[in-house]
Each structure stands twice: as structure tokens, then as C-alpha cells.
Nucleic acid binder design. Structure first.
Lengths: 129, 129
DNA sequence: GTAAAATGTTAACCGTAGATTACATTTGAT
DNA sequence: ATCAAATGTAATCTACGGTTAACATTTTAC
């Protein structure tokens, strides 16, 4: 159940971990640091916090993996991001780099209901058209 | 010029001031406190900060008004809010209360380019339709 | 005009999330 | 295996944005 929600910062870390998982064998702190443009220390502190929230598994000096709950939430954010970016580019005609930047912020701001209806709308508006 | 951007919290205060202006003769700290659901102390601190940023005028123990820059930014946020809410309700079919809540967050997350294209899209999709 | 109530401010504190610096640990080259 | 480089952590600091409690000021009722 745990239907609580997380801060944009927490969601950014989760999304980054999921994204990096697809590129690397194991996700290290330094990867997140580079990907998100924050210090290694900031990542270290954040990982302690995400671990305490049950969103990742992370032993001292070892690599980082998502728990089931962390993965579910990360996937939701990543899907929202991709959906919104596609909407902005393909339906509104927004420039790709602006769309990417806007999607990074918008992804944290929509409810489940809205996300579902938005996705359906995009799909029906791109299939036809 | 001052093309910088402001935090969601700052934008919420600006939007609230503009909204309350339309209802009251003068906007007081207590009005913002009630409207936004934060303490009087939080409003007081925020007003000091908005004042320092040149977004409002506010002498000690007196009522609050927007500067030109504050008003411009407040109007932008309020327009974004209304536009997004309308999009969510009338185009996506999202429930009104969910749309209101989502719009409150989304309004802080879109660039000028996106806002303009979105507005045009909504208008052409509701005029016809 | 004065006293009580309402409102505004300040001070002290909390939590989040970042930075820098210094130190700890792990990794990799030899 | 050892040492240097890379990476991870801890300590300390900053800024933001909220809280409560105490105090200041203004407003309102009488």
C-alpha cells in the first residue's frame, strides 16, 4: 500500500538509478554524481536516506540497487518523463531540449489519475493524426 | 530583463497575493496565512524575502502589494494554473479536484515556450472539437 | 481612550538538500 | 603485494521553508 509520495530530489535519484541500470552492470555512487551533477558527498547522504526509506539496497562502499518499491516508483517517474517529453515534442511542437528540461520538472507533478489519462490521450492522438 | 526564475514557494506567494487582490481591498499577512495554510510567521519571513527580491512592497505592519515585476510573474503563474487545469479537465477528462491539485504543482514546471504552445493548443482544440 | 483581541514580527528550532574539506576504503597498475 | 588514484563517507557549513512560542503592534469593542 505505502501510497505516500516522495520529494523531487528523491524521485530524481530513483529515476537516475533505473536509467543507469540499463547502461551499466552495477550502479555506483560516482555514476549518480556524474549523471545528476551533484557531489559524491550529496549522493552518499542521499543513498543513506533512500536506504532508510526502503527504496534502495546499499551496503557501505558497495554498489546500489533498487528494492521492489524503489523500482516501482522509479519506473513510474521514468514513464511519466518519457510520456511528457513525447507530448511536448510531438503534440505541442516544443523544441527537444526545452521539452527535455520541462519534462524533468513535470514528471514530479502529476497524479496517477492524470498520468493514466494523459497517456491514453497521447496514444490515441498519435496513432491517428 | 531579470529573466531569473523563482522557487515554487515564492511563486505560490505571488499567485496568492494576486488572487486575494481580486477579492479584498488590501492583502494582509493573515489572508495569505489562511489562503496558503501556513503560519503567520512563515508568511512574515516570506514577505521579507519577497520584498528583498523586489517582488512586493511591504512596510512593517502594513498591507502587501505587488511590484510591477511581482505582478508580471504572478500573472504568468496564475495563467499557467488556469490553463493547465482547463487542459486536465476539458481535454484529458481528469476529475476537477485532482486537476486543481495537479495544476498547483504543474504551474511551476513549464517554460515560457511550452506555456505558449500549450495555450495555443488548448485554444484550437476547444474552439473546434 | 483603554483594554482585549487580532495580527505581525522575531527568535530559536527542525528537516531537506546541497557544498567543501578531510579522511577512509577500494581499485587498479606495476 | 604495494602504492597511487579513484571512489565513498563523515563533519561542517549554507540556504530554504516550514514550525512554535514569546513579544510587538494594530485594531476593535466598549
Amino acid at each position: 500500500m505505502t501510497a505516500r509520495s516522495f520529494s523531487p530530489a528523491v524521485e530524481d535519484y530513483l529515476e537516475a538509478i533505473l536509467t543507469l541500470e540499463g547502461e551499466n552492470r552495477s550502479v555506483r555512487s560516482i555514476d549518480l554524481s556524474r549523471h545528476l551533477g551533484v557531489s559524491r558527498a550529496a549522493v552518499s547522504k542521499a543513498m543513506t536516506s533512500l536506504n532508510a526509506k526502503g527504496l534502495i539496497e546499499h551496503a557501505h562502499y558497495s554498489s546500489i540497487s533498487l528494492t521492489d518499491e524503489g523500482r516501482r516508483h522509479a519506473a513510474k517517474i521514468l514513464h511519466s518523463h518519457r510520456m511528457l517529453k513525447r507530448f511536448l515534442i510531438e503534440i505541442l511542437g516544443v523544441d527537444a531540449s526545452v521539452a527535455e528540461s520541462d519534462a524533468c520538472h513535470l514528471e514530479h507533478s502529476i497524479s496517477d489519475e492524470t498520468r493514466q489519462k494523459w497517456l491514453a490521450y497521447i496514444q490515441s492522438n498519435l496513432k491517428s493524426g
